[in-house]
Amino acid sequence: MLLLLQYTLIFTSVLVLVALGGCISEHSGVINLGLEGIMVMGALGGALMMRAFGTESALLMVLAVILSAVVFGMAYSALLGVACINFKADQTLVGTALNLLGTAAATVLVKAINTASNPDNHSSEIEYVRARKMFIVNINGFEFNWFMLIAVLAVIGVAIMLYKTRFGLRLMACGEHPQAADSVGINVYKMRWAGVLLSGALGGLGGICYILAGVSLWKFENGVAGFGFLALAVMIFGQWNPVRISLAALLFGLFRALSNTYVGIPFLVSLNLPSNVYNMMPYIVSLVVLAFTSKTSRAPKAEGIPYDKSTR
């Protein structure tokens, strides 16, 4: 049971971070479907840092890995920004391209690095057993991960930023009615760039958190298994509101955790279901939840529409 709680909390943290990223981006008016690719890039940044940086200090390591993941995520999300804000490209298409590119680029890169250090090694895996331990504090068998704290801080931070600061309110105005925002002197392009870059930072954080969640070796060929999209489902279920998003993430996190831990729960083992059923669970739950919540969706009104100064 403790294990289930631990996995639920860590997967919830991943979903919260990524969904908040999507939430900020959509409030600024850009649909970020590339979150999956951004997660992969953030994970790559963090994993490379863990591989290269040999320090004994846990604090230094945690900070370095977080910084690296954030930088990778932001740099990668800039590709979305250029295409969708400056060149008015189709946001769905570009987001999808980023997802595919993320996995492909990470695989090529990691394989090249592995082969360079050892000519016989053609795998796309990075191993980080030692570094992972630095992220974890063991409390009576419960593995507390620093990312759980970061996720809580992120929810509070984003909620305050969106609803209580001048910047946040202006950002949301750009997603609701960019022409009106522009008419009172807000630079819509700048605000949207801010939204996209922030979502890149949070997406990158979510990515590194995901690969640190349960394992100490990651195969980059597999990407992040649709987690970026699960986060988008969480965001919709949370109605683009940071606090509700965190509650929604808890539900999804629980179902995702079940697939890792159901063998330890006697009741579920006695049902004797194939393990694929548990793998499917989060996706089925999100479909059902979306079917019931999308009708009264409160999505930002101008999301997905490239801003053109000359139209009203």
């Binding site: 649709g226 999209f229 793998n279 499917m280 089925i284 479909l287 979306l290």
Partner: peptide, 13 residues
């Protein structure tokens, strides 16, 4: 429901 998100979910299912 956004067809991209439901599509991805059904891919995995």
């Amino acid at each position: 429901v956004n067809e991209v998100i439901s599509g991805i979910m059904l891919n995995w299912i």
